[in-house]
Write a protein that binds this DNA or RNA. Structure first.
Lengths: 159, 159
DNA sequence: GATGAAACATCAAGATC
DNA sequence: GATCTTGATGTTTCATC
């Protein structure tokens, strides 16, 4: 096994862990036809490498009354390094922003924003435009229903 | 503590777990000024309630060469229950689709798609339009950079 | 909320291919 | 020479009290 490569057993382990990280090592080992030690060493190695970033609990948004998901698209005329760094800091600090992408195409940035309701969204919107200067356009689209949400990366290319 | 309600200690536990689910119960208990037993009972209860949905490992896309994120917006003239059910099944089956929303506004659906490169995206695109009939418009925007990605829901409203 | 038994992860030493 | 097995040790979970 080369320095930074993943073999099929590694990918199988990743696939199991990104589906359910609460299963016991014993069972993962069993599923990949290994005993616990080598399986544990592989997981450890992949954590060191950074392939496995972290282990988290996924919560249910509805139970927490976080019922509104918005996609916010931004345009700006500011493209300096300074502006970008400030923007990045603000975005990271705004906990309502769960995802943010710099886009190719018409809009410069796209944000996925999660809040309780329209009232909270309005508060978020005001906070955003007051903290981030130089925005020339802010367009929000609202999700009526979440049809799919997964944190599992597509790994079938590796199997 | 009411039947389905969460107190501040519960929210604190949730906040810790959605940040890092690998920490020992002992430490979580310590952080919320509880001993292990009551803390464990709270976590257990929140799992039963469904507030805690699951525990997963988050993988690093770059290590797996999944370097292309696309936002795909769809329009359709099909709005029957039958069509929607078929659409939903296809979307759930397409592992490249990590998120999917039914939207208010100009486009009917928005998909977040993760693939290795433009070549794989093209393969995905062909698969999508061949499997899902009745699409009148398919517009893809590509992310040049992921500035933020978190699975942590915003809980500050509760603290 | 304390206790302790059972389950589990971790690690060392050595076997196997 | 990397990858595995066994078994011993320390840690964590979780049911009973």
């Amino acid at each position: 096994m080369g320095a930074n490569l993943l073999d099929k057993t590694d990918v199988k382990i990743l696939s199991l862990l990104q589906r359910d990280a609460s299963v016991a090592l014993t069972e993962i080992a069993e599923q990949v036809n290994l005993t616990t030690t080598p399986c544990w060493k592989r997981i450890n190695r992949m954590q060191q490498m950074g392939v496995i970033r972290r282990q988290v609990a996924l919560l249910d948004a509805a139970h927490l009354k976080l019922d509104l998901i918005a996609m916010v698209q931004l345009k700006t005329q500011q493209h300096s390094r300074q502006w970008f760094n400030d923007f990045l800091l603000q975005i990271k600090d705004l906990e309502e922003v769960m995802e943010c992408y710099r886009m190719a195409g018409e809009y410069d940035y796209m944000l996925k924003v999660v809040v309780q309701d329209m009232r909270s969204f309005d508060a978020f919107y005001k906070k955003l435009v007051s903290r981030v200067t130089g925005l020339t356009e802010v367009t929000s689209s609202f999700a009526m229903e979440q049809l799919k949400y997964t944190t599992e990366l597509p790994l079938s290319a590796y199997s």
